[in-house]
Design a protein around this nucleic acid. Structure first.
Lengths: 163, 163
DNA sequence: TCACAGACGGTGATATATCAACCTTCCAGG
DNA sequence: CCTGGAAGGTTGATATATCACCGTCTGTGA
């Protein structure tokens, strides 16, 4: 059976189990993050990038590159996070086209407290589910897929971001 | 370094590459599905399950189990899909608590035409990115994670669905 | 110097997801 | 009976994501 329009049994098993993990793992992690730290997965992602930047400060579009979100999503999300005091917007003095985003004290506290618990869950449900060899094989496979996606940056995609 | 509150280098590499794949692959697949077939990923998922059911007919809550969506999400989404003629609601004669969902002709046509193209992309970006051995290892790892998640069905989760 | 193209960012409208009630129906226990 | 609880399904309000458009600024080239 070399029917290119379908997957064979092994391929389908891999694909479906990947889809299952994607759904279950992210919903489980997000639910726990929300419950234990009051942060959504998106909040967490933004805070991680900011906390890794020098002085907890980044340009909005750098955040967009890091998260691979559209600029409007970034903007809306920052508005909400600023409203909750996790983050602060600072117009850029030199060039007022740009906008700096800085971590507030509350924001740093939030990520510092949330991260260990989150990481513990990642370890519990992801890392500890497999042996070190399996983990390495898994990482290699993921990198291969990511590379494949990056190399085939098909041009006719309307939204430039993910292509 | 046995600091349980962080990941070592290999673990972090695996986790971050997994996150990257999750983001890039799903956005790429969804964008192409939308452009080539006019279906969202969610539409596609519903249509796949319906088309695999006898007579293209399922109970709404069976769809919920299959997709792992909340019942309200199922209901809203079916309303939209019914509006586009992909699907039809039929109250159940025997027990009027239940609601049947059936695939329309248009719905079957849509999934029959969309599936080969979608599968081709899955093959292109996922299956063909690795060797058969890597694929098998990947599947095994995913199954291990899924099993871990299922076995640790932590009780104190407010939303029953994903726990 | 004066348009003007292009990059960054924001905004409002729409689409979709989530949350909290609610209604109906069936069934089990008085 | 009949009453209360549980399950399936729907609805409307809210939260979040996406889309199309607009505004600001800067650097560039006529």
């Amino acid at each position: 059976m070399t029917d290119d329009s379908w997957l064979n049994e092994d391929e389908q098993r891999a694909w479906r189990s990947y889809l299952a993990v994607q759904t279950k793992l992210s919903s489980r992690l997000n639910a726990h993050l929300q419950r234990e730290s009051g942060l959504s997965g998106s909040d967490y992602e933004v805070l991680v990038h900011l906390s890794e930047a020098p002085e907890g400060r980044m340009r909005a579009f750098e955040l967009g590159e890091a998260t691979r979100w559209e600029k409007s999503r970034i903007s809306h999300h920052l508005t909400r996070m600023a409203g909750r005091g996790l983050v602060e917007r600072q117009p850029c003095a030199e060039d007022s086209r740009y906008a700096d985003v800085v971590l507030t004290e509350a924001g740093r506290t939030a990520i510092v407290e949330a991260a260990p618990r989150h990481v513990a869950h990642v370890r519990e449900w992801f890392v500890d589910a497999m042996s070190p060899e399996e983990l390495a094989a898994f990482a290699a496979a993921c990198e291969a897929v990511a590379e494949k996606l990056d190399s085939s940056a098909d041009g006719d995609c309307p939204s430039a971001r993910e292509c």
